[in-house]
Design a protein around this nucleic acid. Structure first.
Lengths: 151, 151
DNA sequence: CCTCACTAGTTGAAGTTTCAAGCGTTGAGG
DNA sequence: CCTCAACGCTTGAAACTTCAACTAGTGAGG
């Protein structure tokens, strides 16, 4: 027997589903319009910029951006084509590919960041109390944990 | 001057971004595996099934599924090809297209629902308190409202 | 009545993501 | 040493989404 969602859960679920569809669309469209970047492109550049030497192995970057290696590989090829990242073989192991953020890529990220952060602030955090932010972190963390615990 | 996110906001934001990427991927993959349906396909069938006469105009369905008309049109063509929905011109206005859920489509939805609900329950609600559910609804509602208020 | 801006929907191409298959590398066990 | 399964990554095709352009119908204002 299926345990259906009760009334409260259903309302919460529909809103969460709305957030997933609309928020990611809104972020994509702002970044696309202002910086010719996908939200996922942005995430890649941002993760690289925050790592030591601004460089990461493909697998590590895939993990940090929650993406499949295949998706990442295609996107990195695109970004590489634009000169924003560069692939270099790892000296450590010949099957590892390292991705570097180039100076160009860094500039693109720096130029895109303010608009993106502004959008996130205005769509998500504006008008949210401290408690709301804490609850958001707690609940979102819970969901991510459950997903990662169920492969 | 950009107002950056503070520490708490940043943590909450990274988790929320994780939810958007991972939860929708998880839902898609469960539905794809078990019922050969996209989460968006499922939403279309579900919205139709809950409406009067199991029929809606394209625009109305687009609004309820948070999709562009173009995206919807392509997907409805696919579902129509499988015999799960049918397009009929509206008697009210010749530019309106109505979409009906067919008997076949209804069966597909009924077959897919338990597994989908089970997945949602297990990834989202299992282990969440009443208060958490309320907070989720409140915060998610807040975000959706802000997006809809900023077109 | 017209006109014209707007609405509803479709379409094809371009861009993105997934899927499945494949290639070379590594390392644990025999 | 070998072997072979697992790892890290890439690739091409298929599936999906977006984008821009387009058809056609509607209705408010003149």
């Amino acid at each position: 027997m299926t345990r259906w969602l009760d009334e409260d859960e259903l309302r919460a679920w529909l809103r969460l589903a709305g957030v997933m569809l609309k928020l990611s669309a809104a972020l994509d469209s702002q970044l696309q319009r202002d910086s010719d970047l996908t939200h996922f492109d942005y995430l890649c550049l941002a993760m690289l910029s925050e790592s030591d030497e601004r460089r990461l192995a493909m697998s590590e970057l895939a993990a940090r951006t929650n993406a499949s290696l295949s998706r990442l590989s295609h996107v990195i090829s695109k970004l590489e084509g634009r000169g924003w990242v560069a692939r270099t073989p790892s000296p450590r192991s010949r099957r590892v590919t390292l991705v570097d953020l180039t100076e160009e890529g860094w500039k693109v990220l720096v130029a895109a960041a303010p608009g993106h952060v502004e959008t996130v602030r205005s769509l998500v955090f504006e008008g949210l109390s401290r408690d709301d932010v804490a609850a958001l972190e707690r609940v979102a963390g819970h969901i991510v944990d459950r997903i990662e615990g169920t492969p």
